[in-house]
Design a protein around this nucleic acid. Structure first.
Lengths: 247, 247
DNA sequence: GTCCCCACTTGATCTCCATCAAAGTAACCA
DNA sequence: TGGTTACTTTGATGGAGATCAAGTGGGGAC
């Protein structure tokens, strides 16, 4: 039924997209048309990929790096509304205008498709529309999960939730599961974390210090995190769900 | 392209669904199959329509009344993650299990389709999948807009934002546009509003009293609201966007 | 080397909203 | 008619996190 089931994406070298995303290389086995409209773009850390309100002329997947979706109020308050990790999809088939800023948080490589041809392809290729619907439903679930974090969790729980998401996502990419300590580099500045969590950067810093002091996490330098006990972290996050949300 | 463009739904009497939703009556003009798998269900105010974690065996649209999607933590903190007004769609094609509680906030009538037949229909009928994708994208936008409200707005701005959404949604149903005073009944208790806004019911009550005292809104009884100046309310909400998000 | 810059940490204080508590209002029912 | 119940308002108080303000540390340019 899905492409994923038919191909072993781990051998798909020049397309590091392993799941969920529309994968140009792999689809090309079935759909040469996709191959012909795909192209790659690179962005430097800090660069804005799409401005809110801009005409969108492409859709695509993040191949490498991390991008963020943010909304900003006139007075400068900003809220991150999504985190795009490798394999995540960007863009709205059928929409003209981008609803939020998309920014490269680290250096980013994207695999793009021109929007018009992609939409035409989608109209004639039911399973692409299907996959897109599934991905959109995943994002919707993630957004709603995040609403609980923003609306009801304490600062400490928010930090733990964010660490837990990144850790899980990281672990799932490196295929190791959740047993044993988990090690990763924080891809976000304290300020970006604050924007994601609806906090200030000072509060983020204080809470990270507290978690560190209490041994819930270990820090080497400012970004390199070790989580000795994932269960403990999830307790701190107030998570009953055994997780699995992604964006 | 869309059904909406082909039919005048305002004449579609026993199907009050006017836009966005999968509309059984109207689709029936094209798709007799849909007609054959649809049925109606009623729920009383307060009743739980779907429990989080339950097997979902139907999808459908809200025909009348208001339902809410909520998440709850073990310790009882709850966050509303969506408000379902008439014409909104409920259910996840392709998903087995409900991710949140769905509760009838007022008395609710739903137009349901058994999930299996609906999914089969979707697989063979591209434009249903398309419409569902568009609806899901709308919900995603709404969820992300709401993340800004939850993460960055003050209590007063949150209240103004909620009133503004309900007012706009109401106005769009009654086709009057936004000029002149807008009148509507609050469909939510103070507690439900608090759960939507990430506040306590006391704070909701205080802020509503404040807005009333300052003439931003008028109250008759506890629920009947008049908004003399929509622009003023949107200023209070901190909204630059001229709006249009729905869920 | 050392200077600078940027990300981060830590401290002191303030404020908005949560919490606890009590009283008011209206609908409903016996 | 009065009493019960569910919803709402209002008051008093406290605390989590914002805000303002220094200070730290590491990496890169020269």
């Amino acid at each position: 039924m899905t492409i994923k089931a038919q191909f072993d994406h781990s051998n798909c070298e020049d397309c590091p997209i392993r799941h969920r995303a529309v994968c140009a290389r792999c689809d090309a086995d079935e759909l040469e048309e996709l191959e012909s409209i795909k192209y790659y773009r690179s962005f430097e850390a800090g660069q804005t990929i799409i401005w809110s309100g801009d005409q969108m002329n492409f859709v695509g997947s993040v191949v490498a790096g991390i991008a963020s979706l943010t909304q900003t109020m006139e007075d400068g308050r900003t809220q991150m509304v999504g985190l795009l990790l490798p394999s995540d999809f960007v863009g709205r088939p059928g929409r003209e205008v981008a609803p939020y800023d998309v920014q490269a948080t680290t250096d980013v490589v994207m695999c793009c498709f021109r929007k018009k041809p992609f939409e035409e392809l989608m109209a004639t290729t039911p399973h692409i529309a299907h996959r897109l619907l599934q991905m959109t439903l995943d994002e919707l679930d993630a957004a709603r999960e995040w609403m609980l974090v923003l609306g009801r969790k304490t600062a400490r729980e928010k930090i733990a939730s964010l660490l837990s998401i990144i850790a899980r996502r990281d672990a799932s990419i490196s295929q190791k599961g959740l047993a044993g300590p988990i090690v990763f580099d924080l891809p976000l500045t304290r300020e970006a974390m604050a924007d994601y969590l609806g906090l200030t950067l000072e509060t983020v810093s204080r809470q990270i210090s507290a978690l560190k002091k209490e041994g819930v996490i270990t820090l080497e330098g400012k970004r390199h995190v070790t989580i000795p006990d994932m269960g403990r972290l999830m307790e701190e996050a107030g998570d009953d769900s055994d997780g699995g949300f992604l964006v």
